[in-house]
Computed example of a mutant assay.
Amino acid sequence: SNFSNEGIVFTVTLMLAGFAILTFSIGIVIDAISNGSLLELLKERKMLYKIARLRNHFVIFHHNEYTAQLARQFRLNHIPFVVVDSRKDMEEIAREHRYPYYVSEEAFTEVAFLKSHLSAAKGAISLSKNISDNITLIASVRLYEKELGRTPLLIISNAETQYDKERLKKLGADKVVAPPSLMAKRVSAMAIRPDMENVLEEFLYKPDTPIDMEEVYVPEDSWAVNRALKDLHLRDRMKVSVVGITEEKGRFIQMPSAETVIKEKCKLLLVGNQKGISRAKRIIIQTTRPGDL
């Protein structure tokens, strides 16, 4: 007697609507569980949580044999990395090639950059065999870092020809590797000096090796400009040897003598232990001659 007919109708209608919504929601949950989409969402959330904790990692875009080999080397050297590719079976690919972190998104999208935590990365690597993919990725990354206002990322890419290599560098790539050129040089080294190839495999390409190789740029205001190599005392003080010099115009001098004069804006190819090379770099970039030399 406390409810009017209109009130009873409204209450019943509200109850039926609530029951319908509840039934519909349960149906969606059951469908998601049966189709595996809920499980996929939970897996992705767990993966993204792990990636969000990374710092100074590398983001490798596009899965292929180059990526698989690079991932193997990164694991051996304990370098954190995330692989990004749009393939739907990335979970299986990651399991097969032992990718610790992966994102299944289109490489050059902002979603992929966010999920791979590119904002906190050390560098981006694009290893597509399609030059257009590499161009798009490089341009997108450079625009993204400008939007963030962060220091430039180290961008490494690959190209099949020398022409494409120069194009990628002009577009913003810091380093571009040309596999055909590298293969030709390495095979040539094997043919001419087979023993030298064994030395490279033993000391330069293995992790935790006591010998390292690095190229050091000589700025125009360096005290070392117009001085002979012997004046730097790299070999007797730091146990570091200069095995090559790349001049500003690109001419390469192999195995320079102690009397070779260092020119501004050239690059010295150093071989030695990491501690010695680090010390040599600090000395070379100074504007005044160090007192202990």
Rank of each mutant, 00 (worst) to 15 (best):
N2M: 12
M90Y: 14
A71M: 08
P256H: 13
A173Y: 13
L39D: 05
A224Q: 03
G244T: 02
I277A: 02
E201K: 15
F74Y: 10
S181M: 09
E40A: 05
N64Q: 05
L293G: 06
F24L: 14
R237G: 01
F74D: 01
N2A: 06
L229Q: 00
R186M: 10
K267A: 07
L114E: 09
Q73V: 04
F19K: 06
D31S: 09
R95D: 10
L204A: 03
T13H: 05
A280R: 09
N77F: 14
E264F: 08
L229C: 02
S126G: 15
L38E: 01
K249N: 13
G272D: 00
I245H: 11
T288Y: 12
A107L: 08
I79N: 07
N64W: 02
S126M: 11
R53C: 01
E248Q: 04
A120D: 14
P100W: 00
Y163R: 15
Y66L: 14
E40H: 09
L38Y: 10
Y102K: 06
V243T: 05
F24N: 07
I138D: 11
G7E: 15
N134S: 07
I211G: 00
L204T: 06
E166F: 07
I51A: 00
L229T: 02
F10Q: 08
I51M: 01
N5P: 00
V29S: 10
E197S: 05
E6A: 15
K169I: 12
M183D: 01
I192Y: 10
K281T: 04
T260S: 13
V243L: 02
A191S: 11
G123I: 07
Q274T: 04
Y101M: 01
V240C: 08
S188Y: 15
H63F: 07
I28Q: 03
G7L: 10
K206F: 02
T288A: 08
G244M: 05
V240R: 08
E147F: 06
